[in-house]
Amino acid sequence: MELPMIRAQGLGMQFNLGVEKGFSLKQGFIDCFDSRKRAERKRHSDFWALRDVSFSVSRGEVVGLVGANGAGKSTLLKLVAGVLKPSAGTLTVRGSICPMIELGAGIDMELTARENIFLNAAVMGYSERFIRSKFDEIVAFSELEAFLDVPVRNFSSGMVARLAFSVATVVEPEILIVDEILSVGDLAFQAKSEEKMLQMIGGGTTVLYVSHSTASIRSLCSRVIWLEHGRIQGIGGADEICTLYENHALPCLHPGAAM
C-alpha cells in the first residue's frame, strides 16, 4: 500500500494567549514568590487550538476542511505547511508543498516587479533554473508586461495581488494548501484566477482546501474534515459531512435538524 501524503496522529497545537503581554519585571518578581499564582495564570492563558487531531490524506485526494471561525482550520494548514511546529502528536508530510495561505509573502515594495518575481519565487523555495524557465509564463499570466521594471510601491493593490498570484500558482506542487479560493484583481482577472485555482485543484494533486462555501467543497472535495473547537467533529464523505455541518451551523434554516 502506498504511504499517505499527509498523516497526522494525535496532533495538538497549544498557544499561550498570555504571551502577548510579554515578560514584565513586576510579573516575574511576583512569580518568584507565588508559584501557585503562576500556575493558575498559565492554566488560564493556555489554549489548545487543535487537540487530538488524527487523519491521513492519500495521493490525489482533495480534502476539504470546514468549521466555524476559530475552529483551528488555519492552524492546521500552517502545521502542514511547516510554519508551526505541533506541540503534541506527530505529523508527517511527504512531497513538495505549495502553501497558498496568504499571497505575497516576501514582496518588497522597493523592488521592481521583475526583481520581486525572483525574490518571491526564492521565498517559496523554487530553484533559480525553474523560475527562469517559467518567467515568461508568470509575466504573461499576470498581464504586467508593461510594468516589469516599475517599483512595486507604485503598483495598485490589485496589481500587487496579480503579481503574487501569478508567482505562487506557476508551480505543480505535490501538495496544494488552499485557504479559500483566491480570486484577486479586477473582474476579468478574478475569473481567470479562479479558473486557474480550480484547474490546479482538479489537476490530480493532493489538496487540502479550506472554505466556508459548502457548495464549492461539495463540488471539489472527495472527503471532508469538520473541525469544531480544535477537535475533529466529523470526517467522511463530502456530502454527508457538509450536510451535518450545515445543520449544525445554521439550525434555524433547517428546523428540527438541530435536535
Binding site: 518588497d108 523592488l111 525572483f118 521565498v123 523555495g125 523554487y126 530553484s127 533559480e128
Partner: peptide, 20 residues
C-alpha cells in the same frame, strides 16, 4: 543547497534597496 537561491536573492535585495 535548496535555499541558496533565496540567500542570494536576499543579499541582492539588500544591496539594491540600500543604494536605491
Amino acid at each position: 543547497r535548496r535555499y541558496r537561491f533565496l540567500l542570494r536573492q536576499l543579499v541582492l535585495r539588500d544591496f539594491k534597496v540600500k543604494y536605491k
